[in-house]
Nucleic acid binder design. Structure first.
Length: 733
RNA sequence: GGGUUCGUAGCUCAGUUGGUUAGAGCACAACAUUGACAUUGUUGAGGUCACUGGUUCGAAUCCUGUCGAACCCACCA
């Protein structure tokens, strides 16, 4: 810092400080000052997706993580923040396919290997950019330990888990109804889908004497029953009977069953049961032992009779036309209804019957629930615990296979390969062509262990990205039993966005308890989303995103950090915009100028005077007549900040350090001190100043490190530490 | 349908277990500034703390209900 300049120039200062921290390896738990530290504090940083540069939301999380890390370093813990990057299976595949499309290349033009290699390259470039961004925001993570979720050893651990779960019966290959994305050509877990309200039509179709209201007449041929509510007086007497119908599929008989899930208020109160193309109906089918018929394939085309190969919507029109000709359409109403869409590509989801890999989640969920009940895991804010519990209590089996290329290929092998057949009745079966054996193994077996068949074919599918990322807390440390695992696992805090509580946090607890026997972290802090000035979610499609780099270039990193955390509360979304960051820049400048003033005031002391000054500070007996009040206020301030930090009230702490420095330290104390020039007064000034700088360091690390270094250069403080990062936090013994 | 959060100054937001006169920043007005800072300071104006009823010596804070906004989960056949 050149204190000749009237205004603070963050750019050059931050660059120097950053180099100083990195060159000396200060972020590492192996750094010399950590040598005698026993208590560890570790955070697994949520690995951002390696398919783009970081957005502000990720960086707001990084800032909170870093504040916690720096605070704990200063209260004497051996701190490890572990960075990583996530391959983000489907999302990255979608993003990368678009990039290829721009070059006029279609995914299927490439071999699987080429696609993978190119996508890997793409991710490595983003990984580098993201790392630079993380470093620039001051994230004090140990990059010698940085990992990518597709690193070989990580994948190996993921495979080990899969194999163990398979052998213990927690993983099965099953025929179930799944969410199928026709655009992405893959199965999706429920959680990977969203709902969107759309205008549609409700068709009232005659089934013999009864009328059924449906939005999906094209699945009519897959009906296997009609269902009514057992309490519905209109239809109660029909339960257990059958109805003869004549319709486009000819003459046939459908059983009438009772199911409590049928809403008597909707339509006519009669539901057509289509287990092959509706999740609810699939459940009804299971409960009543009904057959399953499929009439739509994975391309979203009809497979039945004369409608074969028509797209769903074309088929619907044609079928309605034919029904009308037969006089079977009673009426058509307009309806607003929610359609299920793919979270990634936003296209409509088709529920289809398919063979996929599933995890039996019920037992795992029980353990994860127990962890919370036994107070082994705490949520900030506490109310999120309810969401966590409700998710786990209602959890369904987790579909972990995806029909994609970018990710970890499932280590399952089929004797002779497999094929899926829809028979003439519309029944889907998966047939393993050899002796029927499925071999789960990390390496490809030479032959089938059961029948000796040499023709062994690997499953084409990859894992859901969350299958690997939920194992991240121990895999990133090198796995169970590794040196880092022993020292840093379980970790202390999971700090992440409130939007991935279910995707990641809850499943991480389940998976890690299974693989390590321990709850992976004892505290979960969930932050809100960063919104734009109008309170809208920032997104690339809206173009309302704020580029973190712009803010840093314009106002400096410390200013941006403060604006990301000051006055926030956990879980609560907050707005960020130019003027806000500018305000914090003004505060940082205030710190600069006040320090400039202090250095001018201290003036050129002789070495004797400096040593007297330091002795006065060390003795603690430096009260001067004019400023007794400040000591009491400092004392309260320090204990408040420590209390806030312990309760994860980061927003309050950030707000208070700024407020105190500006309006108590500068506006009152510093003004008063203008009249005092004794060595005692100067000692007092330096002492209070230093306390404030230390208090502020976790939040605004750059300027505080810079001031600290000047205090040392000027020989105004004594310390064996090279950096403020390892100084003792005020109020901590 | 179930759940959560929010509603405080013109705007953006704090308000730590219920406790004097409800705070900050931005914006606004006036004044000041020769030991730092016009990216500053001082002072001021600006609030029925959404509304309603209750608990309490005392409510922005706790409880009932209403209105408005946002979000999550489930489902819409």
């Amino acid at each position: 810092m050149n204190i000749e300049e009237k205004a603070y120039n963050p750019k050059s200062v931050e660059e120097n400080i950053l180099n100083f921290w990195q060159d000396n390896n200060l972020y590492s738990p192996e750094y010399k000052s950590n040598k005698n530290r026993k208590k560890t504090f570790s955070i697994i940083l949520p690995p951002p997706n390696a398919n783009s540069s970081l957005h502000l939301g990720t960086m707001s999380g990084n800032t909170i993580q870093d504040i916690l890390g720096r605070y704990h370093r200063m209260i004497g813990d051996k701190v490890l923040l572990i960075p990583g990057k996530d391959h983000a299976a489907i999302q990255t595949e979608v993003v990368f396919e678009k990039i290829l499309e721009k070059k006029g290349i279609k995914k299927r033009d490439l071999t699987r290997e080429d696609f993978y290699t190119q996508c890997y390259e793409f991710c490595m470039q983003n990984r580098k950019i993201a790392k630079t961004q993380e470093l620039n925001i001051g994230l004090s993570a140990d990059y010698s330990r940085e990992r990518f979720t597709l690193d070989n050893d990580i994948t190996n651990m993921v495979y080990d888990t899969f194999i163990r779960m398979f052998n213990e019966g927690y993983i099965y290959r099953g025929k179930r109804i799944i969410n199928w994305c026709i655009k992405d050509q893959t199965a999706l877990a429920d959680i990977d889908t969203e709902y969107r309200e759309e205008e549609g039509k409700l068709y009232y179709i005659k089934y013999g004497d009864l009328t059924v209201a449906t939005t999906r007449p094209e699945t009519k041929m897959a009906d296997v029953a009609l269902a009514v509510n057992p309490k519905d007086k209109r239809y109660k007497h029909l339960i257990g009977k059958s109805i003869q119908i004549v319709s486009i599929e000819g003459e046939r008989s459908l059983p009438i069953i009772g199911d409590r899930g049928v809403d008597p208020e909707f339509g006519t109160g009669v539901l057509k049961v289509t287990p092959g193309h509706s999740k609810e109906d699939f459940k009804i089918g299971e409960n009543n032992n009904l057959p399953i018929i499929s009439v739509i394939d994975t391309r979203g085309r009809i497979t039945y009779g004369k409608y074969k190969d028509l797209k769903i919507k074309e088929g619907r029109e044609k079928i309605v036309e034919d029904l009308q000709k037969l006089g079977l359409i009673e009426k058509i109403e307009d309806i607003k209804h929610n359609i299920q869409i793919c979270e990634r590509c936003k296209q409509e989801i088709e529920p289809l019957i398919s063979y996929q890999w599933f995890i039996r989640t019920k037992d795992f969920a029980k353990e994860a629930i127990k962890a919370s009940e036994n107070n082994e895991i705490h949520f900030y804010p506490k109310r999120q615990e309810n969401n966590y519990m409700r998710f786990l209590e209602n959890i369904e089996d987790w579909c972990i296979s995806r029909q994609q290329w970018w990710g970890q290929r499932i280590p399952a092998y089929y004797c002779g390969g497999k094929e899926t057949i829809i028979d003439s009745k519309g029944d889907i079966t998966e047939k393993i062509l050899g002796c029927g054996e499925i071999i789960v193994s990390k390496d490809k077996p030479n032959e089938c262990p059961k029948c000796g068949n040499k023709n062994i074919v690997q499953d084409e599918d990859i894992f859901d990205t969350w299958f690997s990322s939920t194992q991240w807390p121990y895999s990133v440390l090198g796995g169970v039993g590794s040196k880092d695992y022993k020292e840093f696992y379980p970790t202390n805090v999971m700090e992440t966005g409130r939007d991935i509580l279910f995707f990641w946090v809850a499943r991480m607890v389940m998976m890690c308890i299974y693989t390590t026997g321990k709850v992976p972290f004892s505290k979960v802090y969930l932050h809100g989303l960063v919104l734009d000035k109008e309170g809208q979610k920032q997104s690339k499609s809206k173009g309302n995103g704020i580029d973190p780099k712009d803010m840093i270039d314009k106002y400096g990193t410390d200013a941006l950090r403060l604006s990301l955390v000051s006055s926030i509360s956990p879980d609560q979304d907050f707005r960020l915009y130019d003027e806000k960051v500018k305000g914090f820049r003004n505060f940082i400048n205030k710190i600069y100028n006040s320090s400039r003033f202090i250095f001018l005031k201290i003036g050129d002391l002789t070495e004797d005077e400096k040593s007297k000054l330091k002795k006065l500070i060390a003795s603690g007996n430096i009260h001067t007549k004019t400023n007794i009040k400040i000591h009491a206020e400092m004392h309260d301030h320090i204990s408040n900040i420590n209390r806030f930090m312990k309760n994860f009230e980061i927003g309050l702490a950030a707000f208070q350090i700024q407020n105190f420095y500006h309006h108590t330290f500068c506006d009152i104390y510093l003004e008063e001190m203008k009249a005092h020039n004794s060595i005692e007064a100067k000692a007092d000034l330096i002492n209070i100043f230093l306390q404030n700088i230390l208090l502020m360091h976790p939040f605004i690390p750059f300027i505080t490190e810079n001031i600290y270094q000047i205090l040392k250069e000027e020989n105004l403080i004594d310390s064996s530490e090279d950096s403020i990062m390892y100084e003792k936090y005020p109020g901590i013994k």
